[in-house]
Amino acid sequence: MIKFSNSLIGLINFLTFLLSIAILGGGIWLSTKANNSDCLKFLQWPLIIIGVALMVVSLAGFVGACYRNTFLLWFYLLTMFFIIAAFLVFIVFAYVVTDKGSGRHVMNRNYLDYYLSDYSGWLKERVQKDSYWSKISSCIRDSHVCSKMGVEINGVPESADMFYLRKLSPIQSGCCKPPTVCGYVYENETMWNQGGGTMDYDLDCSTWSNDQSQLCYACNSCRAGVLATVKKHWRKISIVNIVLLVLLVIVYIIGIAAFRNNKRIENDEPYSSTRMTKSQPSRIHF
């Protein structure tokens, strides 16, 4: 098994190299998606860094295993250890910061409403900072996610009852309409008139504006919608990340076996044999 480890580590690192390309592509895709609609750049940079690091390390491990280069294998093992540790910290951190909070079901509505009070921790503190939120809200506004909500049936705008049956994204629900509790009356997807709701119940009720450049971009519900989007994206890739972490650990263990095998070859130690020396040579000869 130890002699077989060099060939196996070379093959696995080649596959890991291909996987690093996919991870790098995923990070770039998340970056593009964040710029276009979600606007909270949280997941893409760790994935891009991990993808590039895996690409470099897998090349070093592949060359080191195939050419029995002990230095490259040593570099591979040392760097892989830090990558695994950093990846584990990233997974745990992302789970912790996206653990709490979810949308609330609303009576006679198919979409969910989002409240910032349901969230806590580092991400909530980030979106509550005006300097940080101004960049996110500007990004959401520039993405035109709200203006794209309009739906027509046979050339006729959808009715209120049809709108209530829609499944809105967290950002559409939190940023493009007022919270349901405010009691606003539907005119169209982004135009709502004051009704009989309790306007003092939620600060967002007075923050909402029919000005298409304002809407609910300054609302806490919009902040909550962004956090819900981050949580949704993290949950989608969490299983892949855990599987990747397990794969990295397996590759690391095999890499240790390959490194030991190369050290044995450099020391001219035959496999499954031991060297014994006597402190005093025997004086009996036959």
Rank of each mutant, 00 (worst) to 15 (best):
M1A: 08
N6H: 09
I9R: 06
G10V: 05
T16W: 04
F17S: 06
L18Y: 04
I21D: 01
L24I: 02
G26Y: 10
I28E: 01
W29G: 07
N36Y: 05
S37K: 15
C39K: 12
F42H: 05
L43V: 02
W45G: 01
P46M: 06
I48S: 11
A53D: 05
G64H: 08
L72G: 04
F75Y: 03
F75K: 01
L77C: 12
L77M: 13
L78V: 15
L78H: 06
F81L: 11
I83C: 14
I84F: 15
L88M: 05
V96K: 08
V96Y: 00
K100I: 00
Y111W: 10
Y111K: 09
Y111H: 09
L112P: 02
Y114D: 02
L116S: 10
E125F: 09
E125Y: 09
V127P: 08
K129D: 10
K129T: 08
D130N: 14
S131A: 12
Y132M: 05
S138K: 08
C139E: 13
R141N: 07
D142P: 02
S143Q: 07
S147R: 15
G155R: 06
V156T: 13
E158H: 10
S169D: 09
Q172T: 04
V181M: 14
C182N: 03
C182K: 07
Y186L: 12
E189H: 07
E189V: 00
T190M: 05
T190D: 05
M191G: 00
W192Q: 07
T198E: 13
M199Q: 12
D200C: 02
D202V: 07
L203S: 15
S206T: 13
C219T: 01
N220Q: 07
N220A: 06
S221R: 12
K231P: 03
W234T: 00
R235W: 08
S238Y: 01
N241R: 01
N241V: 03
L245P: 03
V246E: 00
L247I: 11
V249C: 09
I253D: 00
G255L: 05
N262G: 12
R264M: 11
I265D: 02
D268G: 06
D268H: 14
S273M: 15
T274V: 10
M276E: 14
K278Q: 00
P281T: 02
F286Y: 11
